[in-house]
Simulated scan of single mutants.
Amino acid sequence: MQNVTDRTSNPFGLEPPFDRSDPDDRPAVFGYGDANADFHVIGDYPGVHGGESTGIPFTETESGHAIQDVLRAVGFASGPRDEPVLENCFLSYIHMCSLPDGDVPTDEDYATLERFFDAELRAINAHILLPVGARATDHVLREYTTQRRRFDLEMDELHATDIRGRGFLVVPIKDPVEWYDDDREAIISQLEAILDSDYRQTKGVATTVG
């Protein structure tokens, strides 16, 4: 496979259209990891899943650390928590820009940044999309599958399942702050099962079925 790029952070040089961050925060938390990855983990925004200080998705917060622990368990991540080394895995947010403490993105904010997220997702061109939380899952199912209408957005039921999309296999992940019982083990087991399969055939299968 030809390398897309060797850059780890913001590999395609995206420039967010606004900066509303607090003075000590990064203006945006760009996509990070292996730009040639087969697995793309998709979070919501920095205030939820972390990175406002580090500039790296899925750091700093409870949810971020829990997702990172799953990636370490299946061999995608190693090294320090605040700057992990990723292999075959890429991390990004549907809303990359940092906001003042306590603020949440509006629907208009998400819409403004959607084209940046979409451009990066298509450039990475991963086989497996792993949206984390209800907002990211809703967006991925609406935009990259034809099956959103078939599902209520019940993350307890969608967690660690596989859904065929338009050229992708989507595996939703419930936000870790809502995990209980065996939710952590369920997503680890699902990822291990995918890794043990011929998952690189997923894109062709998903295109046919989705």
Rank of each mutant, 00 (worst) to 15 (best):
residue 31 G to P: 09
residue 139 H to T: 12
residue 184 R to A: 01
residue 95 H to R: 02
residue 15 E to R: 11
residue 209 V to E: 14
residue 140 V to G: 13
residue 151 F to M: 11
residue 135 R to L: 06
residue 96 M to F: 04
residue 84 P to D: 06
residue 193 A to N: 06
residue 94 I to L: 09
residue 47 G to Q: 05
residue 74 V to E: 01
residue 50 G to P: 14
residue 162 D to Q: 15
residue 176 P to F: 00
residue 186 A to P: 03
residue 18 F to N: 02
residue 50 G to S: 15
residue 121 L to Y: 06
residue 147 Q to H: 14
residue 43 G to T: 11
residue 73 A to H: 01
residue 72 R to G: 14
residue 94 I to P: 15
residue 190 Q to P: 02
residue 148 R to F: 11
residue 39 F to P: 00
residue 187 I to P: 03
residue 29 V to H: 07
residue 104 V to T: 15
residue 3 N to G: 04
residue 13 G to M: 08
residue 209 V to W: 15
residue 208 T to V: 10
residue 96 M to R: 11
residue 150 R to A: 05
residue 14 L to V: 12
residue 191 L to M: 08
residue 119 A to L: 04
residue 128 I to D: 08
residue 85 V to K: 10
residue 114 E to P: 01
residue 5 T to D: 06
residue 106 T to L: 05
residue 170 V to C: 05
residue 97 C to S: 12
residue 91 L to S: 04
residue 64 G to F: 13
residue 99 L to P: 11
residue 192 E to N: 11
residue 94 I to H: 02
residue 91 L to Y: 13
residue 111 A to G: 12
residue 178 E to S: 15
residue 121 L to A: 15
residue 121 L to P: 00
residue 71 L to D: 07
residue 72 R to L: 14
residue 189 S to A: 09
residue 124 I to S: 07
residue 42 I to Y: 09
residue 64 G to I: 13
residue 102 G to W: 06
residue 50 G to D: 14
residue 8 T to P: 00
residue 186 A to W: 01
residue 88 N to R: 03
residue 154 E to N: 12
residue 203 K to R: 15
residue 38 D to S: 07
residue 86 L to Q: 00
residue 210 G to F: 03
residue 201 Q to Y: 04
residue 11 P to H: 07
residue 162 D to K: 13
residue 133 G to N: 06
residue 142 R to M: 14
residue 162 D to W: 09
residue 168 F to W: 11
residue 37 A to G: 05
residue 90 F to G: 14
residue 93 Y to S: 12
residue 135 R to Y: 03
residue 98 S to V: 08
residue 124 I to P: 08
residue 46 P to G: 03
residue 139 H to I: 12
residue 85 V to L: 05
residue 76 F to K: 03
residue 105 P to Q: 10
residue 49 H to S: 15
residue 128 I to M: 12
residue 75 G to T: 01
residue 21 S to Y: 02
residue 201 Q to R: 11
residue 135 R to F: 03
residue 176 P to Q: 02
residue 180 Y to P: 01
residue 107 D to K: 08
residue 114 E to V: 05
residue 62 E to P: 04
residue 145 T to W: 02
residue 47 G to L: 13
residue 141 L to N: 09
residue 99 L to R: 10
residue 145 T to F: 00
residue 141 L to F: 10
residue 168 F to G: 10
residue 134 A to W: 06
residue 113 L to E: 06
residue 144 Y to H: 08
residue 157 E to Y: 01
residue 185 E to S: 10
